[in-house]
């Protein structure tokens, strides 16, 4: 018996014609193309996002420059003395010019 006759019909089907050339062609094309971008790269290179970021930075920087910080002196319970009255409260010595405690706004100082 011919051995080839035994396995006739069991051979795998041949590939479609032209498949090899197509595969090689696709491979060559993929090698020549740029790699696909990841999300971070897409974000980093997005023009619209860059413009938005720059705008946000400029706005926030300007706001920080033009908005004065909150001061320690609040309206609170401590008001400021009339300068004329404050001049009397200005005692000799170190450690600050004004009396502690209660204060109110005032006018020019005076000799007392």
């Amino acid at each position: 018996m011919n051995r080839d006759d035994l396995f006739r019909g069991l051979e795998p089907p041949p590939p479609p014609p032209g498949l090899r050339e197509a595969a090689l062609r696709a491979g060559r094309a993929a090698m020549a193309a740029a790699p696909a971008r990841d999300t971070w790269t897409a974000l980093f290179t997005s023009r619209s996002l860059r413009v938005a970021w720059l705008t946000a930075v400029l706005v926030l920087t300007a706001a920080n420059l033009f908005v004065p910080p909150g001061r320690a002196e609040g309206p609170g319970p401590i008001r400021r003395l009339d300068p004329e009255v404050a001049a009397i409260g200005r005692l000799p010595g170190r450690g600050g010019p004004d009396l502690p405690g209660i204060r109110e706004n005032g006018l020019e100082g005076d000799r007392l």
Binding site: L60, T61, N64, V67, P68, G70, G74, P75
Partner: peptide, 15 residues
């Protein structure tokens, strides 16, 4: 920057 601005604004609110 946003945090700094928030601190400033909160300080003004207190004042």
């Amino acid at each position: 920057l946003a945090t700094l601005l928030a601190v400033r604004l909160l300080g003004r609110e207190e004042r």
